[in-house]
Design a protein around this nucleic acid. Structure first.
Lengths: 206, 206
DNA sequence: GTCTATAGTCTGATAGAC
DNA sequence: GTCTATCAGACTATAGAC
């Protein structure tokens, strides 16, 4: 008769917590300085751990960054996936705009992490861009093109419509410092939602 | 009787050329990796000069970066300054959009340099943003608000209108890699001009 | 003006005690 | 699992020969 069966415990609670702490600290640092501009010292200090302890949980600086990026890419594309071909065209697109703007408001560091990666030429996720991302975007563009052909929305270039949604929403996260410097006391996101609603309603109107 | 008067020659032609070469190389590198992520080795290699020679022309890494940023800031704001209060409102704004898009096309590295600086919290030009930039933008917003009050353009939030112009045009420079990955063969700027014209005409229409 | 050599610091990663 | 100590390499900047 066998001993008590010990399940192959992959990760203790402490391990999970520490890995989460490191990811959080790494997001904070990488999103600000990009991969090359960030140091393990900064991340360790931010996490309240020693540098060797960091490397006990992650094999290398690159490993932390890679895990962050790939785990976030999914989250980042979810709002677009939610766009349904059988819904009301204008409402589906406006819903996407609102979800994307909310993500910029709630997860500005994630937005800046991607912005940094793309700015530097997307060395870690270049393949993902011309692979999964392009596939998803092309698919949604077919849907949008169909809506335009049926006269449900204005006749616009679907790819550029999507670029404009990315650009306008992410701007409030990525250029936060500039937006706030120019606006002064006024809250950026209050005005942003109203303005973007106005812009896209006008743009989509037949 | 005095000797031949030697004018206080501030800079020889060779010096001017070398400094220009360094600025060009620095722009290439800094725009890609940001200040912290760039190294003098990279810039020296790009310029075809030795590292000590770089530091003969510029006191420090910081000095190169600072000179680049401040000399470009002017160029970057020019298109907005050209917007005339006494012109046709829609044409003035559309002209600004076109000038800004052309700058993204012709000077993508300059755009990415600023993007990197802002992403990292604008440590070198933070004061400029809430000073000169805010002043200029506020002034133009007063003009735009006047146009809206007179019924010449739609009633929109002027600050967010300007943010949207920055965001939509700079996106094609800053996220160039992503845009091209998604578009495939198609040239981004061909479609961009048509799309942006459409968007802003609709948005400004009374 | 441009080079080689190098000082002094920072960086990613490892070794080994506890 | 976490620490101190430390390595090898990269980094900014300077010294000094030519």
């Amino acid at each position: 008769m066998p001993h008590d069966i010990t399940p192959p415990r992959q990760e203790t609670r402490i391990q999970a917590r520490n890995r989460a702490t490191i990811r959080e600290a790494a997001l904070q640092v990488f999103s600000k300085y990009g991969f090359r501009g960030s140091t393990l010292d900064q991340i360790a200090a931010e996490a309240g751990l020693s540098k060797p302890n960091l490397l006990y949980y992650f094999r290398s600086k690159d490993a932390i960054y890679a895990e962050l990026l790939s785990s976030l890419l999914e989250t980042w594309l979810d709002p677009l996936k939610e766009m349904r071909p059988d819904g009301d065209p204008v409402e589906e697109i406006m819903g996407y705009v609102r979800r994307k703007l909310r993500m910029s408001q709630e997860f500005p560091r994630e937005s800046r992490l991607f912005a940094n990666e793309i700015l530097q030429g997307a060395p870690h996720i270049g393949a993902e861009l011309s692979g999964n991302l392009k596939r998803l975007v092309d698919e949604k563009c077919t849907v949008i093109r169909g809506w335009a052909r049926d006269g449900k929305i204005a006749d616009i270039h679907p790819h550029h419509l999507i670029f404009s949604i990315w650009s306008l929403t992410q701007h409030y996260a990525d250029f936060d410092v500039q937006v706030r410097a120019v606006l002064g006391e006024e809250d950026p996101f209050d005005g942003a939602e109203a303005y973007l609603t106005q812009v896209f309603h006008q743009t989509l109107k037949v």
